[in-house]
């Protein structure tokens, strides 16, 4: 298993990035060099230096420390949104695929409706309706994300349901419960799990976007999207204020993406 992971350099890179993110989040107070929110007007708009690795913003806050603390916020958003939407989506998908008929029709029509909005637009309007806050952005993202899992799980359940090894189990006298949970679910979960690990990154990206337009984290929160939004005011004076938070988002999304792709190969039993 270990050898299989290390045989793909990109997966290793993804793993390393994700580990760095996790460590940063866990030890933020140790890693950060300054307070993430403390205003220091004397050293405002300073360029990156040994004192302020990533420079300071218009009120002298240390951007490096803000990014370090921001890791916690982003990670929490990613994990919670996936933790809410994944079970809802997969359970509905399993029900739709396994029971079929009317139930399937109803569930799939509902997912169609949710998926007929470009994701960020629906999340935007729900978050706007709920009012700007991080919690509401998480709710809004969870509400728009679950149909993807429903689709994935349903289609894999459908393809597995009609496979001969399920029929073999019916011929052996296995009851529907055993067939669903011992034969179908373990096989159907793999693609959704891979998607979930990719989504950790995409959720963070979407949440940063919503914060960027003023819906998510509110100042002075060191959320990356909100920091970028703020950096627009000082773009001319402080390129660093716009550069580093975006780099943090990019690396995070990239890390989860690479890890997800690696997981894809790993969860395929044909390569075990």
């Amino acid at each position: 298993m270990v050898r299989r992971i290390t045989s793909s350099p990109l997966t290793v890179l993804g793993l390393v990035i994700v580990l760095i993110i996790l460590i940063t989040a866990a030890f933020a107070p140790v890693i950060a060099t300054h307070s993430p929110t403390e205003v220091d007007l004397v050293s405002k708009l300073e360029a990156p230096s040994a004192e302020h690795y990533f420079g300071t913003d218009e009120v002298g806050r240390d951007i490096f420390s803000r990014i370090v603390y921001g890791t916690r916020i982003s990670l929490r958003i990613g994990l919670l949104v996936v933790a809410i939407s994944f079970p809802i989506g997969t359970i509905l998908g399993a029900i739709a695929g396994y029971i079929g008929g009317r139930v399937d029709q109803v569930i799939m029509r509902i997912t169609d409706i949710f998926l007929s909005f470009p994701g960020i637009i629906l999340a935007m309007s729900i978050a706007a309706a709920l009012g700007p806050s991080i919690e509401n952005v998480m709710l809004a993202l969870a509400a728009t994300w679950w149909p993807w899992y429903t689709r994935i799980v349903r289609s894999s359940v459908l393809s597995i349901k009609h496979s001969e090894y399920i029929e073999a189990n019916r011929a052996l006298g296995a009851n529907p419960f055993r067939i669903l949970f011992k034969e179908i679910v373990p096989n159907a979960m793999a693609p959704a799990t891979i998607q979930a690990s990719l989504d950790l990154g995409f959720v963070i990206l979407a949440a940063a976007g919503l914060s960027f337009i003023g819906l998510g984290a509110q100042p002075p929160s060191p959320e990356w999207g909100a920091m970028l939004s703020n950096s627009r005011e000082i773009l001319r004076e402080a390129w660093w204020a716009a550069t580093f938070p975006g780099l943090a988002i990019l690396l995070t999304v990239l890390g989860f993406n690479l890890l997800g792709d690696g997981l894809n190969d790993l969860l395929d039993p044909k390569q075990r």
Binding site: E164, Y165, E167, A168, E183, P186, P269
Partner: peptide, 15 residues
């Protein structure tokens, strides 16, 4: 009464 299937690739759970 038991059955043996045609496709030995599809009739065994890969996992």
């Amino acid at each position: 009464m038991q059955i043996v299937f045609q496709d030995p690739y599809a009739s065994l759970n890969p996992r």
